[in-house]
Amino acid sequence: MSSTSKNVTQLLADWGGGDKQALEHLMPLVYQELHRLADYYLRRERQGHTLQATALINEAYLKIIDQRSVNWQNRAHFFGVAAQMMRRILVDHARSHLYAKRGGGAQKLTLDEALALPQQERDVDLVALDDALKTLEAMDAQQSRIIELRFFGGLTIEETAEVLSLSPATVKREWHWAKAWLYNEIKK
């Protein structure tokens, strides 16, 4: 067991016990690990292989948490933090990608997005989404947690409900609303 692992486990327990500062120390550590993992997977050629965000977080979890000394609640907390970190990683990734498109570099003839046909729904502008999510956060914090866990953390409705200690029906209702709100906000 590495010192990081011990550290993270302790911080998680402290945070679960009500120590708010523990979260501040915890986040960079989780971020580091997730970023490393995500980077590895995003760059790797993986023909026909799809990695789930949850799998990634699980992998990170296994790596940096000492399984024997955490309870279920700590795990839920971890998923909450991890989803938030995933959001940051993916949005940053999207931002740097935006930059790459604008800057010339080696690409002389850039495939111009202005030429693009209306995008498929699955192509989400993560940066715009992130901004809209910040607006939502200010009005309805729970909403943004649900989006983080579902969209950035890759959790199912049931898993999200578990992490947030809500009923799956409530999460579903809230999820529908949050989707509509964000979709409307981004399209506006």
Partner: peptide, 14 residues
Amino acid sequence: AESFIEEPAFNLAD
């Protein structure tokens, strides 16, 4: 928005 953000972000990036 039926299918909007139903697919996790990580998979999209992937």
